[in-house]
């Protein structure tokens, strides 16, 4: 089937590849509750923060997926999907659609297939993947550095200069940490890593950033072995 857009991008990509990725989105168990048809009313666009500052529209996602226009789908998958804020303001849809949810699934497909556009969108971000996967906390006090947040003003410098003392000036004992948001016990960090391994998540990380994947695997599996866990017992449980 031709795209509804005459000037569609990625015309050199074989339609079979586009169709395969499209089918992966539709095979996701969440798919059946994301899209029920579309009035083209634009309510989702009016509510959408990303639509205000990007060439982006949740309505277009609903329309293109409903039309099954795999060419336009592939363009959205590469050029638009990472602009979404995942705020779910678009759930105000009168048809009960969830354009943000469609986008969540599309992103997962982009990551699982190691699309270059996904790698580019997540390039600066992957060190955060390491933080969350290895510590169980996504952001930590030691990330408050002027080179990472130059636009947040001089307070970031002050926090960074006084980090150790200021953290010990926070009364809850769990929060006297600098590398983690709070003191997550080692047992719990290992359990978290086991979850990533058992659910096939590490392969997703490998698709996006092989370097981060290798460090993560090395550091965490050494720890697991130190604590007497059998790595061979942690094969994916997804297909049982």
């Amino acid at each position: 089937m031709e795209s509804i857009y005459a000037d569609i991008q990625y015309q050199d990509v074989p339609v079979e590849k586009k169709q395969r990725l499209f089918d992966e989105v539709k095979a996701d168990m969440r798919w059946e509750t994301q899209l029920y048809g579309c009035y083209e009313c634009g309510i989702c666009v009016a509510a959408c923060p990303s639509a205000r500052f990007y060439d982006f529209s949740p309505r277009v996602f609903a329309q293109i997926m409903a039309r099954e226009d795999v060419h336009a789908f592939y363009e959205l998958l590469n050029d638009s999907v990472w602009d979404c804020s995942q705020c779910f303001s678009c759930t105000r849809c009168p048809r009960q659609n969830n354009p943000g949810g469609i986008i969540t699934i599309m992103r997962e497909v982009a990551v699982n297939n190691g699309l270059q556009s996904a790698k580019d969108a997540l390039k600066a971000y992957s060190r955060i993947i390491y933080k969350i996967m290895s510590t169980g906390t996504q952001v930590a006090p030691d990330m408050l550095q002027p080179d990472f947040f130059p636009d947040w003003g001089p307070d970031v410098q002050q926090v960074s200069d006084n980090l150790d003392v200021w953290r010990r000036m926070v009364p809850p004992e769990t929060m006297h940490t600098t590398e983690l948001a709070w003191d997550v016990s080692e047992k719990t960090r290992l359990e978290l890593y086991m979850i990533w391994k058992l659910t096939g998540n590490l392969e997703m990380i490998e698709q996006i950033d092989e370097g981060i994947f290798m460090i993560l695997e090395e550091v965490m599996e050494e720890l697991l072995e130190e604590h007497g866990y059998d790595i061979d017992d942690l094969d994916s449980v997804m297909d049982d």
Partner: peptide, 22 residues
């Protein structure tokens, strides 16, 4: 608790490097 991890949803909504089972 110390035996608590974050929900990891910030990462999920940011990077999609996760899946519903995880």
């Amino acid at each position: 608790p110390r035996d608590q991890t974050s929900c990891t949803a910030w990462n999920y909504y940011a990077s999609s490097t996760s899946n519903p089972a995880a």
